[in-house]
Simulated assay, not measured.
Amino acid sequence: MTVNRAALLDDFSIEVTARDGASLTEAAANLPAGTRVNITALGTEDPTARLALAASAHRDGLTPVLHLAARRVASEQELRSELGAIQDQGTSSHVVVVGGDPRKPVGPYDSALSVLRTDLLGEHGVREVGVSGYPEGHPDIDDATLARALTAKVALLEAQGLETTVITQFSFDVDAVLGWVERVRDLGVDSPLRIGVPGPTSVKRLLAFAKRCGVTTGAGVARKYGLSLGNLLVTAGPDAFVDSLGERLEPERHGDVRIHLFAFGGPTSTAAWARDYLAG
């Protein structure tokens, strides 16, 4: 039994930045009620703008999912303050905890796991926690360490009575994604998986994000995905990737797998793509 396109995009999520506030409100018309909207934690953005976007998404009938970047948190008090702020505005039910970009932590938390160990999430109304997955590996962390960290996070959150969702870095390679899904299931992780997929945007922009994130863009992978390396200005969507993934996923083997759309081309075009893809 394979997964059809409607099942794969059922309850899909979308990832935006604080700069996407106005366009997210416009995009909401094409997003199903309750859609998870992940709001990244970029060091260049004002945290108050992220809070405001979460509140706005909540008013629009969406489910905001704020990212907490462990290595950017200066103290336990700062962590409590950030969690308290999202709890006060009613947007703390879902969060994502990541290590964050700085190589050297500014405070006591050197990894996502160190934040999870504080037990502060459940105290502030968090019910579901997103953690990171890397189908093509991580440029700075070996695969064995990644596997140990993932299983530790899932076990810790289960012990705390919190749900876990694994959200992956985007990829253009269905083979790499399926291989990673099978390895994760072999580890005993049965949490829902959200596979990162870029929303429609220019090939030039996609390649720039791929380079930054260590995502493979070889000629064979690019051709299968539908990227035209000879025309960087053309817009590329994830149709071929999602078609192939949906055809090859086996629910009894791969478990609960959904799509997580990175809105590199903006929330409006990404939401419209999802609407049109589902419509066939």
Rank of each mutant, 00 (worst) to 15 (best):
R50W: 00
R50N: 06
L51C: 04
A52N: 11
L53Q: 06
A54S: 13
A55W: 02
S56M: 14
H58G: 11
H58T: 06
D60L: 08
D60G: 11
P64T: 04
V65G: 13
V65Y: 12
L66M: 15
L66V: 13
H67W: 15
H67D: 14
H67T: 12
L68R: 06
A69T: 14
A70W: 05
A70P: 08
R71V: 15
R71P: 09
R72A: 15
R72G: 10
R72N: 14
R72F: 03
A74E: 10
S75Q: 08
E76V: 15
E78Q: 09
E82T: 07
L83S: 02
A85R: 06
I86L: 13
I86V: 11
I86Y: 01
Q87K: 14
G90N: 13
G90K: 11
T91K: 05
S93W: 06
S93F: 04
H94G: 08
H94P: 08
V96A: 10
V98H: 03
G99A: 00
G100F: 04
D101K: 07
P102H: 12
R103E: 09
R103D: 08
V106T: 02
Y109G: 05
Y109P: 02
D110H: 02
D110C: 01
L113A: 11
L113M: 11
S114Q: 04
V115T: 01
L116N: 00
R117N: 10
T118I: 10
D119E: 15
D119C: 09
G122I: 06
E123L: 12
E123D: 15
